[in-house]
Amino acid sequence: MTNSPGAKRRHLASSPFKPDPEPVIEDFAVGDRVSHDRHGLGRVIAVHASGVTVDFGDQTLHLRSPFPGMSTL
């Protein structure tokens, strides 16, 4: 029996191992300057319930939460 890649593993209270930390989801606001690992520097132009829209100059992308590889400058 194998776990699916998206399934979260249960942590038993009697386990000697620490549970995985909860991921911190960064909040972005319209106008924030951001840096993305793949796309470079950009500016947030819209915030949606599912993510943000960022203008990177040569392209505008809708990025979904939890925003891996993106941080506020």
Score class of each variant (00 low, 15 high):
72 T>Q: 15
50 S>T: 07
3 N>W: 14
39 H>P: 00
48 H>Y: 15
23 P>N: 04
42 G>H: 06
72 T>A: 15
54 V>N: 00
62 H>F: 10
31 G>S: 08
35 S>W: 11
24 V>D: 11
52 V>R: 06
9 R>L: 15
65 S>R: 10
31 G>M: 09
48 H>L: 15
2 T>S: 15
50 S>I: 08
57 G>V: 10
3 N>A: 14
53 T>S: 07
4 S>D: 06
47 V>D: 07
69 G>Q: 04
30 V>T: 14
66 P>C: 01
43 R>P: 01
51 G>T: 03
40 G>S: 01
28 F>Q: 01
43 R>S: 06
54 V>R: 06
50 S>Q: 11
17 F>D: 15
25 I>C: 05
41 L>Q: 14
19 P>I: 07
22 E>G: 01
31 G>C: 01
5 P>C: 07
64 R>G: 08
4 S>P: 00
67 F>E: 00
61 L>C: 11
15 S>F: 05
32 D>V: 13
53 T>H: 01
70 M>L: 11
62 H>Q: 14
33 R>V: 15
17 F>R: 14
68 P>E: 13
35 S>L: 15
66 P>G: 10
55 D>G: 06
33 R>S: 14
3 N>I: 07
45 I>Q: 09
41 L>V: 14
72 T>K: 15
47 V>Y: 06
55 D>N: 10
73 L>E: 13
24 V>H: 13
40 G>E: 06
44 V>R: 02
5 P>Y: 05
15 S>D: 04
22 E>H: 07
40 G>H: 07
49 A>W: 09
42 G>T: 02
53 T>K: 09
32 D>Y: 10
25 I>P: 09
3 N>K: 10
71 S>Q: 01
40 G>T: 06
13 A>V: 04
65 S>T: 04
13 A>M: 04
8 K>C: 07
31 G>I: 02
6 G>A: 13
36 H>M: 00
3 N>M: 08
35 S>Q: 12
36 H>W: 02
60 T>M: 09
21 P>W: 11
8 K>W: 05
42 G>N: 08
10 R>N: 10
65 S>N: 08
35 S>P: 00
26 E>T: 15
7 A>Y: 12
59 Q>R: 14
26 E>L: 14
33 R>H: 09
59 Q>C: 12
66 P>S: 03
42 G>C: 01
48 H>P: 04
14 S>C: 07
54 V>G: 06
9 R>N: 12
73 L>M: 11
27 D>S: 15
26 E>D: 10
70 M>S: 03
36 H>E: 00
57 G>M: 04
41 L>E: 12
22 E>C: 03
16 P>R: 03
67 F>W: 07
34 V>L: 09
51 G>C: 02
62 H>S: 11
40 G>K: 13
61 L>K: 02
50 S>G: 03
3 N>P: 01
6 G>Q: 02
44 V>N: 08
56 F>M: 05
25 I>W: 04
61 L>W: 01
43 R>Q: 04
57 G>E: 12
51 G>R: 05
